[in-house]
């Protein structure tokens, strides 16, 4: 493994900003758009996902020699779904308001491509400690992105922040509507591109997506047939 020489802490810090899963590699867009009508919902969703990421990365990394290659994706999905069910229990019990606000999207953490992506691209190849740190870094990076999105949408769309009212009488309510979600995410990614001074990604690339191998295979097959 080529990165074994790098200090362990970089596994944690890289996911926060440099390789932020949402804003730089553009994974896990569905929850980013769906639950960020309030900053506090964004944090709740982000931390729930972080918990699942740390647990699944640790478990998958520990079991990487036991799981046969052919059935690894179904095994990963079962491990992820178990932890999602676990966090659903905890939230229903201790934070019923947040549980109701996140609703369906809490179950949908199971199919968040960040989690499967990290499991496939990182945890199944690295040591337990590195995988856990990688999960924590990526999860907190995701939380940060959700918090930024949620803050912008809540301030403009509802005239409040973390539940604190600003006393604005006519907030621009389109910001908390679905259309505003797409708009704010577009702007935030554009700003990140500008700050990072790099060419924005021209299209969604599959890096880290568990289906990448399959898509590539199918694309090649199709092209071979066409030519």
């Amino acid at each position: 493994m080529s990165d074994e020489k790098k200090p362990v802490i970089t596994e944690f810090t890289k996911g926060l900003i440099k390789e932020n899963p949402t804003l730089v590699t553009l994974l896990g867009m569905c929850p980013t758009l769906a639950v960020t009508t309030q900053a506090s919902n964004g944090i709740g969703m982000g931390l729930a996902t972080t918990f699942v990421l740390i647990c699944t990365n640790t478990v998958i990394s520990a079991l990487k020699k036991v799981i046969p290659g052919a059935v690894r994706l179904p095994s990963f999905i079962v491990i992820i779904a178990s932890f999602v069910t676990f966090i659903e229990f905890i939230m229903k019990r201790s934070m019923p308001d947040l549980y109701d606000a996140l609703g369906l999207y809490l179950s949908l953490i199971t199919v968040n491509c960040i989690i499967l992506g990290r499991a496939e691209a990182f945890a199944s190849r690295n040591s337990v400690l590195r995988s856990a740190l990688d999960g924590a870094g990526n999860g907190l990076g995701f939380t940060l992105a959700l918090f930024i999105m949620g803050s912008i949408r809540e301030i403009f769309g509802a005239g409040s922040w973390m539940g604190i009212q600003f006393g604005i009488e006519t907030p621009v309510s389109i910001f908390i509507m679905p259309a505003g979600g797409f708009f704010v995410l577009g702007i935030v990614i554009a700003v990140v591109n500008k700050l990072a001074k790099k060419k924005p990604p021209k299209e969604l690339h599959c890096a880290g997506c568990p289906n990448e191998e399959l898509c590539e295979k199918y694309r090649c097959d199709k092209e071979a047939k066409a030519s």
Binding site: P178, A179, F182, F183, G186, I187, A190, K199, P200, K202
Partner: peptide
């Protein structure tokens, strides 16, 4: 330049959503 690619696509999606 900064909007090229995905950001412009997302803004367009927002208009379709409207």
């Amino acid at each position: 330049e900064m909007f090229k690619g995905i950001p412009a696509t997302l803004v367009a999606a927002s208009i379709v959503s409207v």
